[in-house]
Write a protein that binds this DNA or RNA. Structure first.
Lengths: 346, 346
DNA sequence: TACTGCTACGCAAACGTTTTCGTGTTGAAA
DNA sequence: TTTCAACACGAAAACGTTTGCGTAGCAGTA
């Protein structure tokens, strides 16, 4: 086992100074041609690569981006990571991942752990618990220390930073308009409690679309599910809530769900009620994932373009990192949604 | 914006030496009680946290684990990451993620990038291209530099390191035995080309199970799909190949597929052929993912326990990192598979 | 007084780089 | 012969830590 070779070792071996070696490798013309070549040959032979940690310490830059997300076993988030990694690598950065697991404490601890020199900036999506407690001091402190943050998807007005979001409002409207144009008269929405901002916006889009089409909204058509039911262990509870929705609205002919799982589960309930999809009732989900594509019937969805979100977030962050001027202007980029039509709608 | 405070700044402010500050914070009894308290109070006030990079350089340890996987938008791999992250965090390590995207070159480049001081050890699963080319020099070099590697799932005998694998052979047998016990007489396997080791093992398990039950294997019942068809863009091609399988074997009554997607697609084809599941034909998949759980009918699968694999791999790596003795013994841990019965089998 | 032994602190090296500045050696011009 | 620029290289500081060792000051003892 041979340890990694350092400048010092090369210097000693070739009987020159460390500076000479360093300059030779960086092709400084301060060094004579023969010395330079000799050093370079030796370095290549021993496969010399500069030590990243030493460089980081010297330059006070790590060329590493920290990601903090609530959950990684999730189609949307992993797509975002893929986007971030793609851009980061292309621009010479590495990516370090922290999981908050939807917990406020883990979010705080993980951020502190990474903020002490390990990374140059953050890309993150806020955990549900943090949204609930509305405690954003850790973001403010991080930003205050001069470490830029880019938030995506679950963002919050109280924090001043670059943001990449999906136009949930418009996306939702797009879905409802599609249902209306396909002949639906009684459209329900299955959404989450309001503290998750994206759920709130999607509900608002639903209401607005109805209004614009002179369709009166009915409270019984709005089902706000407790978030904890999204956890895969409480599927039966979720199913029962949706069954209630069907029973209360016999003429239901369209369903818009704010995530895949709700939509798939709703389709299952519809099948139980002997309704034909899409003839009797149509479905649209949100977040284009693997479930939508491979369900039977396949599910029409609003795609969020997770990868694009990641790419944009990474570009925003790296731009800020590499701009020397410290401007305090922040932008919010909106990634357009897209309606992907499949078999669950006419 | 206030930059992070350093020992030097505290020292200057309190008019003591840097060493005094450092020792005070580490509660060295070399330092007098009053000085110690003064320094600690000041440090707390300014929220001093030691700089990780400086520590890494000094200790020649980063307390960071590098993960290199072929793909992150993948239920199995993200579960593994979750397992790694869980253990790593618990034991005070961070996790840095590299994606090979199934490419040999990216795997090599990414590994070199991380190996230069950024991490203490690797946990990885080999890319398909690397498996195809059988070029493992980058693994050998990394290990030679004294950086431990733990491989999982897609491993290879040629590299000497700790490994965590699934008992694909037994898992596959488990599945086939289940089908046989449920009355299947003509069981097909949908698998990948042999260069992916896990596909090969699963095929062997299939053959062995048949043999043990005195059922002759038939070549027409073994469908080896080109891997590129797993990419979601070639679903029709995949579907056609499976249709061929059905046409050639009219009495087909059981299908074992080495991944979720193949299984789901096969069920779709069966439905097209008006076969009832599980009455006329039964299905078992491999890799328990979100598709299996929410398909209709839900799919019986062999679960690989991705999270456990990640946890075990992380424990193995950290154990090796923290053991000072340099023992050259490597172990291969086998994670048991589990048959999860759902609606696609009787 | 002279010595011993604490206590409480500072100095400096080390981790591996990069970079600024200084300097010894040439050869040529004055 | 002196002077000077050009060349080729080395010394040292800096990034932020930790730690072994040296030492000034002081009290106690012989």
């Amino acid at each position: 086992m041979k340890r990694k070779v350092t400048l010092k070792q090369i210097a000693k071996e070739l009987d020159v100074s460390i500076s000479t070696v360093s300059k030779s490798l960086r092709n400084s013309k301060e060094i004579g041609e023969d010395t330079r070549e000799k050093v370079q040959a030796f370095a290549k032979l021993y496969n010399y690569k500069p030590n990243n940690i030493a460089l980081s310490l010297k330059n006070r830059k790590t060329r590493t981006i920290g990601i903090m997300i609530p959950e990684i076993v999730h189609h949307f988030f992993s797509k975002v990571i893929r986007g971030i990694e793609l851009i980061a690598n292309k621009r010479g950065y590495n990516v370090i991942v922290g999981l908050s697991n939807e917990s406020f404490d883990k979010e705080v601890i993980n951020m502190e752990m990474l903020a002490n020199g390990s990374i140059d900036g953050f890309i993150l999506s806020i955990s549900k618990e943090t949204l609930l407690q509305q405690d954003y001091h850790h973001f403010h402190e991080t930003i205050n220390q001069g470490m830029p943050i880019v938030m995506f998807d679950r963002v919050v007005n109280e924090v001043n930073c670059d943001k990449v979001i999906v136009d949930d409002f418009q996306g939702s409207k797009k879905a409802i308009n599609k249902l209306i144009n396909s002949g639906c008269k009684n459209i329900a929405i299955i959404t989450t409690k309001d503290y998750v901002n994206v759920g709130k916006l999607r509900t608002q889009g639903y209401l607005q679309a109805l209004e614009e089409n002179q369709i009166p909204a009915k409270a019984s058509l709005i089902l706000k599910v407790d978030d904890r039911l999204v956890s895969e262990d409480h599927l039966e509870a979720l199913e029962q809530e949706i069954e209630q929705l069907f029973k209360q609205n016999k003429k239901l002919d369209g369903v818009f769900a704010v995530n895949e799982l709700y939509a798939i589960t709703a389709m299952k309930v519809a099948r139980k009620f002997k309704k034909k999809i899409p003839e009797d009732i149509q479905f649209i989900g949100y977040t284009d994932g693997v479930l939508s594509k491979h369900a039977t019937p396949s599910l029409t969805t609003i795609s969020q373009h997770g990868q694009k979100i990641g790419e944009k977030a990474a570009d925003l962050l790296i731009d800020k990192l590499e701009k020397d001027s410290e401007d305090d202007s922040y932008q919010t980029v909106i990634i357009e949604t897209e309606l992907i039509e499949r078999e669950s709608t006419k």
